[in-house]
Design a protein around this nucleic acid. Structure first.
Length: 954
RNA sequence: GGGCGGUUAGCUCAGCGGUAGAGCACUACGUUGACAUCGUAGGGGUCACUGGUUCGAUCCCAGUACCGCCCACCA
């Protein structure tokens, strides 16, 4: 006998272990079954399971379990991402606890530490996934960095059976040889904290409080001009002789690198001085005033200082006008005189320190534009407070500097063409479809992708430099040397010291040998290869053959650019095929107040805590039911609790079946052989629920699928069916009893299957617990087949009949409650003037109706007994003789209330039907439906009036 | 500045050209042997606003307001 409740804490780990041990999660490599593959978005190896993962993994597991039951050969590919910056940060923090800095150690030593950390503390999330019930094939777990090089050669590495690192090198070399990867000196986003370039996507623009300073740049040679400012109507509002030009800046410290002052060519104010020179204060250089379309005459003074090396806009202007691009900052964001433009006093100052110093010096020189203070009449420097957009590193949180450096780039524009086409022509589609707009929008404006990072943790770029400036890209050192020798004079050796390498900040003349590029690749470069690198690419493996392309990618919208688009690019480029057929974009998980969960806000819910408290099934089912097409999910504990209760309901339904010998069925169920309408009906309803859930899952409507399963289980199976069959089970008719037991057992089994993808643990536990009662319950539930239903299971007549029964019972209950007839009071009920089929129905379901509606008697007569009130169910008048049980006045007022409501409804309907346009243009069935409603309503009015008259007579 | 989305019951959200739905919360009644992690019933909504299309609009179209999110180079 089942316990009175399910114990998730005990059952879940036990069941999971058994599934895993029995190899339930592994696909077959030798089958004709249709393959179905989902690759997991690899979580950061540093990560722990948070709500976002819980949702993401739940949805994938629902799909995977569903398709597995449908007979597909399923691979759910797990793994983790090495997460360059994030992991380096974590390990650096660990080291800092012991007072050790990364820079105190060698690169080799540091990466060894990272590997050691990864082996020990990394990848926790994969263990946590087991708690959730994720049915991934753990034997194929991959890591984007591949094998740990610090393991002894004879030690197997779980990630060693495919060459993840080889895939990355291979991809890089191929793209380089095709000209799609190149080295270039460009303005990139520089993170002064991590001292590395980052991609545009890793920059977060935030609105912050800033200032705008107005400087005077003096014209050279004592030149003057008449500055005239007009208002909108062309009236002169200011006219004065000036020997300076006003520029406005939010970043005063960059002025030292100015290459020009730009004004709009149509700006009449500055027309007289275009082409003249100004003497740049503090730097004491001469720079020209140039005309360019970029400055907006309406903004600031209309004149813009151009700092080509430290601003993306200015950089474009500088390129157009061939202006010098002078670097002012070093890799830490401190002033440096690398290009001879920074006076000694500022060298070494941090950028923010330098800002203050420069502003102070400009004020001291009297080169700040001033305004007159209205109260004191004194001149005050013009410093406006202003909201400005400032770029921050999404990992470091420090202000990003645009920096002119040598980096590696991917020609994303070229690769994006096919990626765009594949979605445009439907080879891959987004679900919901509107995300494809976002995707296109980004691809259409794509910039070169900076893939080099000045970090130590990551895939080292397979490029070597010679002292003559040559670049050799090769799969390995040996190959690099071979290429060097083939192409140039002398013999070559690999440089032993990285310090001699050609990097952005090192003089190239230091080259003595062939030196490897010290940089590593952007983490997303290897992630972009994930759908096929995990399957063994570039080798031609059976796995690749069988499981690529994947069926669907399940992810949140925040990584469409980072990851989805790049997988599309790389997948199409390297395999010629799309990496997945569908991209299902799910919501983000928010807290109850609709805020993004984060540790810093303290509103993060821990999925593991919820699992501890309510069980994994409850959490999974909650996630599934809430996974609509919307953009976010607001999760509350209450919701999880409610779904835990649903599990309990299911558990008790099974318990009831077991207690009533309703779990002991075996063999096949032939719906056509059933005699009892109640049984025919539940089979039909069960089939309908499966169809609804199946269609919904095929369309990634997890909420609809889970909802259909929920409603069937609770509202149909438990609330109605199990209640309706109780009289049957207690009755004398052994044939009916036997049939009912069979059907109840069958429906229970189907329910377990239906719910299994969502609630794998409780369903598996019940399946196992009930296995002693039915020989069909062999093996794991998770390996059973998803039932297919056809017309044989549909039974419209039984459905109609049971709808009548349930409606009748509900109607009577409702009337009783309204009239204050307590549940303990049995009431006589009469079907008034019912036809033969209806009388037969009453006979067939008499026991159930009496029991469920708490009746004294249920019979059919020609007329309503005195003291009855009447209601109508399915065209039949139902009279409840309750006059002596209730307050007649109360009953009358209830009837009156109903009559008023009916009257209102009928008036509306008649008005509608009187409209010739409605009758002419509305679909026939709609008109008919309305007519029928009027007819029914009128009959009902009559009966209610009769009942009222009966009450009057009392 | 561009783009996307939202506004429906107290809360969280479905829905969608033809009588407004669910879950939770609330109210009343109920412990009838599967289940109080429960059952039965009930109250509660000008479907943001303004126009338009339509026989008919919560739904389609246009605009307005407010709220989110993403992208963007206004010094």
């Amino acid at each position: 006998m089942l316990d009175s409740r399910f114990d998730p804490a005990a059952a879940e780990p036990r069941l999971y272990k058994r599934w895993e041990q029995e190899g339930c999660f592994k696909p077959s490599m030798d089958t004709a079954a249709e393959p179905y593959c989902i690759v997991i978005p690899p979580p950061n190896v540093t990560g722990v399971l948070h709500m976002g993962h819980a949702l993401n993994h739940t949805l994938q597991d629902v799909l995977v379990r569903f398709e597995r039951m449908r007979g597909k050969n399923v691979l759910w590919q797990p793994g983790t991402d090495h997460a360059g910056i994030a992991t380096q940060m974590v390990v650096e923090r660990e080291l800092a606890k012991d007072g050790v800095k990364r820079t105190d150690m060698s690169r080799e030593d540091f990466t060894e530490k990272v590997w050691a950390w990864k082996e020990q503390s990394g990848g926790k999330i994969l263990d946590q996934d087991r708690r959730l019930g994720s049915s991934m094939d753990w034997s194929r777990t991959r890591f984007t960095m591949g094998r740990n090089p610090h393991l002894p050669a004879d030690t197997p590495d779980p990630n060693d059976d495919v060459a993840m690192a080889e895939a990355v090198r291979n991809a890089f070399v191929q793209l380089y040889n095709e000209g799609l990867i190149y080295r270039d000196k460009r303005l990139v986003n520089w993170d002064p904290h991590f001292q590395t370039a980052i991609s545009d996507l890793e920059v977060e623009n935030r609105d912050v409080d800033g200032h705008m300073w107005h400087f005077k740049y003096p014209l050279e040679g004592g030149e003057t001009y008449t500055y005239v400012e007009k208002d909108e109507d062309g009236n002169v509002v200011l006219e004065e002789e000036r020997d300076w030009i006003s520029i406005a800046t939010t970043r005063p410290e960059t002025m030292l690198g100015d290459g020009a002052v730009a004004v709009h060519p149509d700006d009449e104010r500055y027309a007289p001085i275009v082409g003249k020179m100004v003497r740049l204060p503090l730097a004491n250089r001469l720079i020209p005033i140039i005309a360019d379309e970029y400055p907006d005459p309406e903004f600031g003074s209309g004149a813009v200082k151009i700092t080509g090396a430290h601003d993306f806009n200015d950089n474009m202007v500088a390129k157009r006008h061939d202006l010098p691009m002078l670097r002012l900052l070093d890799e830490r964001g401190a002033m440096t005189d690398i290009d001879g433009s920074v006076p000694e006093k500022y060298v070494g100052m941090d950028r923010f320190e330098a800002r203050e110093a420069i502003v102070a010096d400009i004020i001291a020189l009297g080169l700040m534009v001033t305004d007159t203070d209205e109260e004191s009449g004194e001149a005050v420097p013009r410093i406006e407070k202003k909201k400005i957009m400032q770029p921050f590193g999404d990992r470091s949180g420090v202000v990003i500097e645009p920096m002119l450096t040598d980096q590696w780039f991917v020609n994303a524009e070229e690769l994006s063409k096919e990626a765009r086409a594949a979605v445009a022509d439907g080879r891959t589609d987004f679900v919901p479809d509107n995300w494809s707009k976002t995707y296109f929008n980004w691809l259409d404006n794509i910039e070169p992708w900076c893939i080099s990072r000045q970090l130590w943790w990551g895939h080292r770029i397979p490029a070597w430099y010679g002292p003559d400036g040559r670049i050799i890209v090769a799969d390995n050192e040996k190959e690099a040397l071979r290429q060097a020798e083939m192409s140039g004079p002398g013999s070559w050796r690999i440089a032993e010291h990285e310090e001699a390498v050609a990097n952005n900040f090192v003089d190239k003349d230091d080259f003595a040998l062939l030196a490897r590029d010290p940089d590593v690749l952007d983490t997303w470069f290897s992630s972009a290869l994930w759908p096929f690198s995990t399957l063994g690419w570039p080798n031609e493996t059976d796995e690749l053959d069988m499981f690529y392309p994947g069926a669907v990618l399940v992810t949140a919208f925040d990584i469409i650019f980072f990851w989805v688009a790049r997988m599309m690019m790389m997948g199409l480029h390297f395999t010629g095929q799309i990496p997945f057929k569908h991209v299902y974009i799910h919501a983000l998980v928010l807290d109850e107040k609709g805020q993004k969960m984060s540790k810093s806000k303290g509103n993060a819910m821990d999925p593991l805590e919820l699992i501890d408290e309510y069980g994994a099934d409850a959490l999974r089912f909650t996630m599934s039911r809430m996974a609509g097409m919307g953009r976010n999910i607001r999760l509350s504990k209450q919701a999880v609790e409610g779904n835990r209760n649903f599990g309990t309901k299911l558990w008790n339904a099974a318990r009831f079946c077991q207690m009533n010998e309703c779990a002991n069925w075996d063999g096949e169920l032939d719906p056509r052989a059933l005699k009892q309408p109640t049984n025919q009906w539940i089979v039909s309803e069960c089939a309908a629920a499966f169809k609804e859930a199946t269609i919904a899952l095929e369309a990634y409507r997890f909420d609809d699928a889970a909802g259909a399963a929920y409603r069937f289980t609770w509202n149909t199976f438990c609330d109605w069916y199990l209640e309706l069959i109780k009289p049957l089970l207690n009755g004398e008719d052994e044939t009916a009893k036997g049939e009912t037991r069979q059907v109840a057992g069958w429906v229970l089994d189907q329910t377990l299957k239906l719910l299994h993808p969502f609630m794998p643990f409780i369903t598996e536990e019940l399946w196992e617990a009930l296995s002693e009662h039915g020989p069909q319950r062999q093996g794991f539930l998770m390996l059973q087949s998803w039932p297919e239903f056809d017309e044989v299971h549909d039974n419209p007549a039984a459905t109609e009949e049971l709808n009548w029964v349930t409606e009748l019972i509900s109607e009577i209950r409702s009337a009783r409650a309204d009239l204050g007839v307590g549940a303990g009071t049995k009431v006589p009920m009469t079907l008034v003037d019912a036809d033969k089929p209806t009388r037969d129905r009453l006979d067939r379901h008499k026991g159930a109706i009496i029991a469920r509606a708490r009746l004294e008697t249920a019979r059919a007569e020609a007329e309503a007994p005195e003291g009855s009130i009447t209601t109508v169910v399915g065209g039949t008048s139902v009279a409840l003789r309750i006059a002596d049980l209730i307050d007649a006045g109360e009953a009358k007022s209830r009837l009156d209330k109903e009559l008023r409501a009916l009257d209102k409804e009928l008036t509306g309907l008649e008005k509608k039907l009187a409209n010739p346009n409605f009758v002419a243009k509305a679909p026939l069935e709609v008109v008919e439906e309305n007519r029928q409603r009027v007819v029914d309503g009128k009959i009902r009015v009559e009966k209610l009036n009769a009942a009222r008259a009966g009450l009057e007579a009392l």
